[in-house]
Simulated assay, not measured.
Amino acid sequence: MKIRCIAVDDEPLALDILESYIAKLPFLKLVRTCSSATEAMQALQDEQIDLMFLDIEMPELTGIQFLNILKHQPLIIFTTAYPDYALEGFNQDAVDYLLKPIPFDRFLKAVTKAQERLQRHEKTPDAPAPSAPHEQDFMFVKADYKSVRVDFKDILWIEGLKDYIIIQTKDQKIITLLSMNKMMEKLPEAKFLRVHRSYIVSLQKIESIEKSRIRIGPKEIPIGEVYKENFLKWVEENNIQ
């Protein structure tokens, strides 16, 4: 199966590199190169496109803004010079996120993921998604001489102090005598991540990342050096799914 793709970037050199990479792979067919989101929109209307290589930082419309106005999207591989956009790429359900300058081996890894996803869809286009096993969505913690129910969906972040932790929800602060390690054992791995020796964050509540700091509402949470690699790995891995 040939994967029909377009490349969208306002930098001619970046388009030339993508075009040369695509030409090396027989399972890719470059249908068109576009220097703006408006050109790409026309290409998507004119052609059947399976995969779009999309720059994020472009004039008029950014790649993220462009995707937000599309009703039907092909698979997306983001290409950008700015690593701070990784979380936004994840939120757009992109296949992958390539940081410029893009080495060929990294490009090949990304398009192989796109190929695998398209092949899975071809084999089971109408198959319903398997039902996930039931996962407990709350926990009880001891606070103020009683057991308090905490729903995972309400947690924004957790802050560890010397002898206790503060669970910050959308409505209240809950103080309990627990270690950060013990708290991580109670939380679902897919929804929470420790990003600093003193902070655990709800991944679903992250609004932005900038200069090694996470913003959740009015709160800026530092990303510790020890935890940074694991956090960025999570961003890349989940960007694929």
Rank of each mutant, 00 (worst) to 15 (best):
D137F: 01
A81M: 05
Q241K: 13
F66T: 11
I216N: 11
M139R: 03
L203F: 10
A114P: 01
I223Y: 00
L75H: 05
I155D: 04
S179R: 07
Q136G: 01
L51Y: 03
D93M: 06
K71R: 10
L187E: 01
S20G: 09
E189Q: 06
S131Y: 03
L232K: 04
A86N: 02
V226K: 13
I214R: 00
L25K: 15
I56S: 08
E116S: 05
Y21P: 09
P74L: 05
N181H: 04
L98N: 02
A114T: 01
R32S: 13
M1I: 09
P133A: 13
E220F: 11
I69V: 13
V235C: 08
P26C: 08
L54Y: 02
I64D: 12
Y21W: 10
L70R: 10
Q136F: 00
L75E: 11
V150Q: 14
K233C: 03
E189L: 01
N68R: 15
V150I: 15
G217I: 05
F53Y: 04
L25I: 15
L28W: 08
G63M: 08
L99W: 02
I3Y: 05
P218L: 14
D151E: 15
T169V: 07
E122F: 12
Q136W: 01
D96C: 00
F66K: 07
K219L: 01
I76L: 02
K100P: 05
Y21D: 10
E185S: 01
H134D: 11
S131A: 12
K228A: 12
E185P: 00
R106E: 09
E185T: 02
E122H: 13
D10G: 10
K170R: 15
A43K: 01
D96R: 00
I17A: 13
D154T: 13
R32C: 07
A40E: 04
E60D: 15
Y145I: 03
Q65E: 15
A190F: 02
K205H: 11
D55Y: 05
S202V: 09
C34P: 05
P59E: 14
N238I: 00
M58K: 08
R120V: 12
E220T: 07
D154L: 04
D96A: 00
L87I: 03
L177A: 10
D105F: 04
A132V: 06
R4N: 11
A127Q: 07
R117H: 08
E60M: 15
I223D: 00
H196A: 02
T38N: 12
I165D: 07
L87Q: 00
P26G: 08
E220H: 13
S20C: 08
I22D: 01
L108Q: 08
I22R: 03
I77V: 03
K113T: 02
S147T: 09
E225Q: 15
K228L: 06
L30M: 13
P103T: 06
D144S: 09
Y82S: 06
Q65K: 15
L75S: 06
E57N: 15
A23K: 15
R215A: 12
M183D: 01
E185A: 03
V226Y: 11
E19K: 14
Y21F: 14
D16K: 14
L193E: 02
D154S: 10
I240D: 05
I76G: 02
